[in-house]
Design a protein around this nucleic acid. Structure first.
Lengths: 204, 204, 204, 204
DNA sequence: AATGAATGAGAATTCATTCAT
DNA sequence: TATGAATGAATTCTCATTCAT
């Protein structure tokens, strides 16, 4: 079995199906696609999807958890990195999200559109996990406020919402295809967004 | 009211059904409810829903358009009111949205969760209308930049996204029931959100 | 109440609806039209159709019986007219049917397409009435055979079927719009059809 | 048959469903039966009907095309067989149709009652195919007229209509169950019908 | 592991008919 | 007589999931 045991081939098949599911969910939406669309996209037989995944829901759950987990690690890493200012930390977070979209737009689209915003289904099911990210972001702000680095009169939770909501809004514009999302556009978006939130709109 | 014409009774029934649909969509989600749930909620026979509305989709379309239309009027009104500063204009917009939620949380939930964020279905169908609001908000910023009232180095579109995305994020937290949304909470949310965006996070 | 009592106005309304139903049945088919189509075509309110007719079925029943009754009278009249030869009798019958189509194609279309050929619904319900016509036609033949006017070795029932089936086939071609059905075409059709059946195809 | 490939099992199921559909259409009429009746008659699950056929319409389309295709082959074969007289050719056609009914009355009933006579639905959809048969029959006549075998003063199209209309009328009587349709009855029907049309009704 | 046939519970929509006014 | 709102049973088609091979 050399260096690639049988289970690895299986793992590859599983991956193939999950990736196909993400593309299909992004293209048609979770509620508007059929499991057979996913099998077709993956080039496997209908039943094989059910061999690897218990249900259609599970495909979306896994796609979400995988990516959101990475994001949580990045946010936590940024938050606990004492060498960084709050602005640098949030820039790091924004950059990760935006570059994730740059590399694999379908994944981020699915995560945001099909999961985090679904108040009645997946969003609620994964709410604790989603909240985790929001809390960490708020904590980046509140820690900086405690150090006197950021204004203390603003509630950290609201600041976090402004920051995260702004990123989602930018991604939404990209997802809907209304605004270019090339490498330069992405870098500019991070820069402008951070500068807006940290510097404020008011002229000095 | 004694003189209400006969057509009003019909209009009332129609209204009754549309309102019931909004409540059901908010409670279960558009994709997880049945037309019979709406009929039951309205207390009318199944077929009457189809007497007044061509399809289930149309119910959501109408709910969205009605409310978004009001919002557009308010945004346009704020934008063109020369007596107001940009901060006052955006405060007005934020207040309208937030108070709409306060009065009729289901409508705003449906508008945001079931329509504006659905990249593959309703969101795309109504995209022009949705964009209209975003453009007007950006214009409030760019007009103020032209007058030297706001910093010119920030792109107005990004500023608009930060503003609108922040409001949606706040509403999302309320919709998911994670944060109290009483009258005081709403007023505070508007104040904090506006102050954050205009003043910026940075300590002076 | 002069010469037109109130009941006459009512009778007119009834007629109006029945005629509209015939047009709609012809244009869309009994199974593919709605009662509301009939009301619209007649220019009356939905419910009025039910004031004058017990059901949608009844409309078709009446349309059929009215016309088929006329046809039966003509066939019986021809059959019992001792001054006529069998060829003249059947020419009379064919002419009546064909000219009925000429004057009111919708009625004949409805009678044939929607009633007499519906083996599972109306055709079966009215079978006795339909058969009546077929029997009379066969009798025209058998009487002539008894008189030595027509060949006796052919069963009269088959001869009748050839005659009536031929007429229906001609009407079918007209109904489907494949063949012109102007006055001259109709006269020619009767002549050719009768000559074919009486004279036979064989060269002498 | 032991070597039948796996695909045959599927083809058999498909056949099973199509045959069941034909029986149900014949017994209740296309418009008066439900897809579940077909599934029940075939002894399969509801959904399997849709696994093999796109819609209820398609079942009827296929039943019609399959049988009408056979008939077209027979008619064409008869028409181009130079060893036969026109009378022999049309006898062949009539025999095929009548014996088709003898073997599988439901199929012929469905073909005629549910398709070729439906001016507003299936009849119109398949009109070109239906016409094909009529044209070939007319051509059998006109070819014979050109050879001096049949009277030339009669239009071949009318002769064709008389012939085909007569056959349909005979089948109709059988379908409605008004006339016995045993083997002898069928043979007699063909003989009488052909003799009537070729020899004519007139006594010599 | 892999296939795709088989299952059957939905769910939207239609529309004949009834009924209150 | 006239209106059209109200009713709800009926029916097609969909599609997630299971299962035999």
């Amino acid at each position: 079995m050399a260096t690639r045991p049988a289970s690895s081939a299986a793992a590859d098949k599983r991956r193939l199906i999950l990736d196909a599911a993400i593309r299909v969910f992004a293209a048609r939406g979770f509620n508007n696609c059929r499991v057979s669309d996913i099998a077709d996209e993956a080039g496997v037989a209908y039943g094989l999807v059910y061999h690897y995944f218990k249900s259609k829901d599970r495909l979306l759950d896994e796609a979400f958890l995988e990516r959101w987990g990475l994001m949580l690690e990045v946010i936590e890493g940024a938050r606990t990195d004492e060498a960084l200012t709050a602005r640098e930390k949030l820039t790091k977070v924004a950059t990760f999200i935006v570059e994730s979209y740059g590399r694999e737009p379908e994944v981020m689209q699915v995560v945001i559109v099909e999961v985090t915003r679904q108040a009645n289904t997946f969003g609620r099911r994964h709410w604790a996990t989603i909240q985790d990210a929001h809390h960490q972001i708020a904590r980046i702000v509140s820690d900086a406020q405690a150090r006197g680095e950021l204004r203390s009169e603003l509630p950290a939770e609201v600041a976090g919402m402004v920051f995260y909501g702004a990123i989602e809004q930018v991604l939404t514009a990209w997802i809907f295809g209304l605004v270019p999302s090339g490498p330069d556009d992405r870098a500019a978006a991070v820069r402008d967004l951070v500068e807006t939130i940290f510097g404020g709109l008011d002229a000095r």
